[in-house]
Simulated assay, not measured.
Amino acid sequence: MPQRRVVTGRSQEPRQRFAEELRLLRAERGVSLRKLAEDVGWDPSQFGKLENGHTLGGPEVVEALDLYYGTPGLLLTLWELAIADPSQFKEQYRRYMRLEAEALSLWHYGGGTVHGLLQAPRYARELLAAGGSSGVELDRQVDARAGRRTVLDKDAAPSFRAILSEAVLRTSMRDAEGWREQLEHLVEMGQRLNVTIQVLPFGRGLHGLMDTAVTFLRMPEGHAVAWAENDLRGELVEEASRVERLHRTYDEVRDLALNPAESLTFIVRMLEEAPCEPST
Score class of each variant (00 low, 15 high):
residue 193 L to H: 12
residue 231 D to K: 09
residue 252 E to H: 13
residue 206 L to I: 14
residue 219 M to Y: 02
residue 266 F to Y: 13
residue 259 N to I: 02
residue 278 P to Y: 06
residue 233 R to D: 05
residue 249 T to S: 04
residue 269 R to Y: 01
residue 211 D to R: 14
residue 268 V to T: 14
residue 277 E to G: 04
residue 244 E to G: 04
residue 260 P to D: 01
residue 277 E to L: 07
residue 215 T to N: 10
residue 200 L to I: 15
residue 241 S to W: 09
residue 198 Q to L: 07
residue 247 H to E: 15
residue 260 P to Q: 03
residue 225 V to L: 05
residue 270 M to T: 13
residue 211 D to Y: 15
residue 265 T to R: 12
residue 257 A to H: 00
residue 274 A to E: 05
residue 196 T to W: 09
residue 248 R to K: 15
residue 270 M to Q: 13
residue 266 F to N: 08
residue 223 H to P: 01
residue 275 P to I: 11
residue 194 N to E: 15
residue 239 E to Q: 12
residue 215 T to V: 15
residue 257 A to E: 03
residue 229 E to Y: 11
residue 274 A to R: 05
residue 235 E to S: 10
residue 225 V to W: 02
residue 271 L to W: 06
residue 275 P to F: 10
residue 237 V to W: 07
residue 239 E to N: 02
residue 274 A to N: 07
residue 260 P to Y: 04
residue 209 L to F: 11
residue 267 I to H: 05
residue 202 F to Q: 06
residue 229 E to Q: 12
residue 223 H to I: 00
residue 195 V to G: 14
residue 194 N to V: 01
residue 259 N to K: 03
residue 193 L to R: 15
residue 209 L to C: 03
residue 237 V to Y: 08
residue 228 A to H: 03
residue 243 V to G: 09
residue 261 A to K: 13
residue 207 H to P: 05
residue 272 E to W: 00
residue 224 A to K: 00
residue 257 A to M: 00
residue 196 T to M: 08
residue 225 V to Q: 07
residue 207 H to N: 11
residue 213 A to K: 00
residue 241 S to G: 04
residue 225 V to H: 02
residue 258 L to V: 09
residue 275 P to G: 07
residue 222 G to E: 14
residue 246 L to N: 10
residue 266 F to S: 10
residue 264 L to P: 03
residue 235 E to L: 12
residue 215 T to R: 02
residue 235 E to N: 07
residue 234 G to S: 13
residue 192 R to P: 02
residue 224 A to L: 01
residue 262 E to Q: 15
residue 268 V to L: 08
residue 248 R to F: 09
residue 196 T to K: 07
residue 227 W to V: 04
residue 208 G to N: 11
residue 202 F to M: 06
residue 201 P to K: 00
residue 209 L to R: 01
residue 278 P to I: 02
residue 236 L to Q: 07
residue 255 D to R: 12
residue 245 R to K: 14
residue 264 L to Q: 06
residue 207 H to V: 10
residue 201 P to G: 12
residue 276 C to P: 01
residue 250 Y to D: 13
residue 220 P to V: 01
residue 227 W to C: 04
residue 236 L to R: 04
residue 238 E to S: 03
residue 271 L to E: 08
residue 225 V to S: 06
residue 235 E to V: 11
residue 205 G to R: 01
residue 271 L to P: 06
residue 203 G to W: 01
residue 192 R to N: 04
residue 245 R to P: 04
residue 196 T to F: 12
residue 234 G to E: 10
